[in-house]
Amino acid sequence: METILQISNLTKKYGNLTAVKNLSFTIKKGNVYGILGPNGSGKSTTLGITLNVVNKTSGDFKWFDGAISTHEALKKVGAIIERPNFYPYMSAYKNLKLVCKIKDIDYSKIDEKLEIVGLTERKHSKFSTYSLGMKQRLAIASALLNDPEILILDEPTNGLDPQGIHQIRAIIQQIASQGTTILLASHLLDEVEKVCTHVVVLRKGEKLYSGRVDEMISSEGFFELKYEDEPKLLQFLEQHASIEKTTQKDGLITAFLNTPLSASEFNKQLVESGIYISHLVMRKESLEEQFLQLTDNK
């Protein structure tokens, strides 16, 4: 598979603060990547470095195998960072004309892209009169103008109302379904879970995980249990070969599995040991729980 972006040992320091620490990952064509991390984990800084607006302290990054200079590469990239930046006194259409000029492409795509994000009717209104949701959609239209090899979105739904969030997600999913490579930075886990195939998890500028989303949620799941005689249940769980560990919270005992075990089989084993529990639920961890585990443990 063709490599679009390769980041190797990238480090960025702001004075004493290390925003990105020795970060490496690779973006391959055709996948949808998510960069996950709490606020201040270095997501935007990493994207800023690859987009030529933040200077790296050390390390390296290469666009398209390093065959062309960064600013030439960026003409084949569509990106929005944090909030939409346009000339407030110009209409959407004129703003996009300017982007066409910068990217060295002709104006023919403007109307098509405005149609995708649903701004055709307002295309001659000044940018300053737009709502945040419209501004964000215009930013997506602008990023799509050159039919980019990769679309980079940094917190695209930040600050939007539920309707706006829904619109943006629908647009992203539509673009992803057409096979465009997407890199989506977000602290919203369900967002990443819904659209991404691969994920990079960051915390304090360090990479905690990178790989497929479904492999990240790869644990065998866990049981939530309730029983009056807790010590007896705990003793049973401790001796059970398939249970990796247990935690207790709010009268619920959570038992994590290390090998596959069905709920009915587990229930049978409990009954055979003379334990009749009052509550049994088997669950798989959501990305959110995985993420919290990852970011808390280290």
Partner: peptide, 17 residues
């Protein structure tokens, strides 16, 4: 103040340009 300088660079203008 409009942060358009950032967008210009992201859109593919080099700093020299």
């Amino acid at each position: 103040s409009n942060k358009t300088i950032k967008q210009n660079l992201i859109d593919g203008l080099s700093k020299k340009e």
